[in-house]
């Protein structure tokens, strides 16, 4: 059952006052502007045992995404498509408030929102990943481990997933005498677009992008908007217990397109180097 809880991070009174005072002048505790994102660093192919992987640092938030490709049955009703499964786990290493155990609703929401961003944008052309229609298809697992949590896990995880997916190599499977054979060769995945999510939160009437965990502990509402390479919207999730006006949502939607494009270029640039 879902229940309202206090943020486990309780900001010291003076620190909170300082943050709120700064926000009225359009500045933040770490010196950023309201619409400024933290530094994004990506290391590709960090896990050699995986078919693809990426380690993303967004400020102090740190996520590793690893890809494993197997064969299996397609999902019911999607017999003409390969399967893509995105999971996320916030490791106990990430913050003093995380305990090992089954995922809580926040983690489930995180994994589902990241998964929705990838799936709904049709980033991977899954129709090209079918071996026997309705029987055997490629199954791509993208598993994300959040190893350090300092806010905006939605975007950090989403960037890790798209970085790992674009840089992965799929093993080539073939069917010989009704048996699946791994040929030992590899191919590039059929990537069609690069979906990028941008998360904003609302504190008072101020909208700020890419929040830290300190900022998230004071937020009233959160919104994550994913855009694809054509600047189209592919997934949205409003979260937390506050609300937005129509104008605030339109404002974030516009910013999400611009900032999304910047992140997309940045990821492409990092991939080349």
């Amino acid at each position: 059952m879902s229940l309202s809880r206090k943020s486990p991070i309780i900001l010291e009174y003076l620190r909170k006052r300082q943050m709120l005072d700064l926000l009225t002048t359009g500045k933040r505790l770490d010196g950023r502007n309201l619409d400024e994102l933290r530094k994004l660093e990506i290391d590709f192919d960090v896990i050699k045992k995986a078919d693809g992987s990426a380690q993303v640092k967004l400020g102090n938030s740190e996520v590793i995404a690893g890809i494993k490709v197997e064969t299996g049955e397609p999902f019911e009703g999607l017999e003409h498509k390969g399967a893509l499964i995105v999971t996320a786990e916030v490791l106990p290493t990430a913050s003093p408030f995380i305990e090992p155990g089954p995922p809580d609703e926040d983690t489930i929401e995180l994994a589902r929102v990241v998964d929705r961003g990838i799936r709904e944008s049709e980033m991977v052309d899954l129709e090209k990943l079918v071996l026997i229609h309705g029987k055997i298809v490629y199954t791509i697992f993208v598993d994300c481990s959040i190893i350090n949590a300092d806010g905006n896990l939605f975007d950090a995880t989403s960037y890790a997933v798209i970085s790992a997916l674009t840089s992965c190599k799929l093993p080539i499977f073939e069917i010989q005498d009704d048996v699946v054979i791994n040929t030992g060769n590899k191919k590039d995945p059929p990537i069609t677009t690069l979906p990028v999510s941008i998360t904003a939160i609302k504190i008072g009437d101020t909208i700020l992008l890419d929040p830290t965990s300190e900022e998230e502990s004071c937020m009233e509402a959160r919104i994550t908007i994913t855009t694809n390479s054509n600047g189209e919207y592919t997934a949205i999730q409003k979260g937390s217990t506050g609300s937005f006006t129509l104008d605030q949502i339109k404002y974030v939607a516009d910013i999400a397109r611009n900032k999304g494009e910047q992140i997309r270029e940045k990821i492409k640039e990092l991939m080349k180097s």
Binding site: T234, K238, G242, S243
Partner: peptide, 15 residues
């Protein structure tokens, strides 16, 4: 109060 309290989207929409 003219406040939006739930907003989700799956699927592709242009601006």
């Amino acid at each position: 109060l003219e406040q939006i309290t739930l907003l989700q989207l799956d699927g592709i929409l242009n601006k």
